[in-house]
């Protein structure tokens, strides 16, 4: 709770953007999370409908994005940016349209904040 509120304050004080930490994070443990910044459709064949492909790649790539407030507002977790605008390719995975999606994302390392206790204070 307390951490959540602290974060809340930080957010209010204008740190609305995600903290942009050093690019070279040495400590690799923790999970990787993406915030999607862009998407493109790469058709498999020339006949594939580019507009539908673009829209479906939007859904496909955006589905890989975290809602970062879901990390920042909980407390006890931290997102460290490890890469900006990294491109990666995923299959569109749609039975009605072949091809791939090229997603562009900021990459974050999700870590437990160990500096402060994540336990709520006693009696709270």
């Amino acid at each position: 709770m307390r951490n959540k509120a602290t974060l809340h304050i930080l957010l209010l004080l204008g740190m609305l953007t995600l903290p942009a930490f050093a690019e070279d994070v040495k400590d690799p443990e923790g999970e990787i999370a993406y915030v999607i910044n862009d998407y493109r459709y790469a058709p498999a064949e020339t006949g594939d409908d580019p507009d539908s492909g673009h829209a479906l790649c939007g859904t496909r790539c955006n589905a890989l994005s975290i809602d970062y407030l879901n990390y920042l507002m909980v407390g006890g977790w931290e997102l460290r940016k490890v890469a900006t605008n990294r491109e990666f390719t995923v299959p569109l995975d749609n039975p009605f349209l072949k091809g791939n999606c090229i997603c562009t994302a900021d990459e974050y390392l999700v870590k437990v904040i160990t500096r402060n206790s994540t336990k709520p204070p006693a009696g709270n």
């Binding site: 307390r2 959540k4 509120a5 304050i9 209010l12 204070p121 709270n124």
Partner: peptide, 18 residues
């Protein structure tokens, strides 16, 4: 339901800004 002081202070901050 007990909201920590700090959260309450946030409200104050919001109110002040607003």
């Amino acid at each position: 339901m007990i909201i920590p002081l700090i959260r309450a202070l946030v409200l104050l901050a919001v109110a002040t800004l607003v």
